Amino acid sequence: MDSSELSSKGKKLLEDGKFEEALAFFEQALLKNPNDPDLLNDKGVALRSLGRYDEAIECFNKSLEIDPRDKHSS
């Protein structure tokens, strides 16, 4: 499974509220693609959902370091 497939599965699990499982998929995807800002952001969301705020902030900050632009602004 490539990183985009792992990410897709992680996002589905996140939507279903299965945060631990989602986190595992994002971590696997990051092993294949460690500097993907979107994956780091997704991992941060999963960590935040688990109440692991310090780790989530690290992921969000690393994502911003790699890609400081706000892709979602119009």
Rank of each mutant, 00 (worst) to 15 (best):
M1Y: 07
D2P: 00
S3H: 15
S4T: 05
S4E: 05
E5L: 11
S8L: 07
S8R: 09
S8N: 14
S8P: 05
K9H: 08
G10K: 05
G10I: 01
K12L: 13
L13K: 14
L13Y: 01
L13C: 03
E15R: 06
E15M: 06
E15W: 00
E15Q: 11
G17F: 06
K18A: 11
F19G: 07
E20M: 04
E21I: 03
E21S: 11
A22H: 03
A22R: 09
A22G: 04
L23P: 02
L23T: 03
A24F: 01
A24L: 09
E27T: 15
L30N: 03
K32V: 02
K32I: 02
N33I: 01
N35E: 13
D36V: 02
P37W: 02
P37S: 13
P37E: 13
L40K: 03
N41H: 14
N41P: 05
D42L: 08
G44E: 04
A46K: 04
L47Y: 04
L47S: 06
L47G: 09
R48V: 04
R48M: 12
G51L: 09
G51Q: 10
R52A: 10
Y53A: 06
Y53S: 10
D54M: 08
D54S: 08
E55Q: 14
A56R: 03
A56N: 04
E58D: 12
E58H: 08
E58P: 00
C59H: 07
F60R: 08
F60M: 08
F60I: 09
F60G: 06
N61F: 02
N61G: 00
K62P: 05
S63T: 01
S63N: 03
E65T: 02
D67G: 01
D67S: 13
D67V: 01
D67E: 14
D67L: 09
D70S: 01
K71Q: 10
H72G: 13
H72R: 15
S73T: 14
S74F: 09
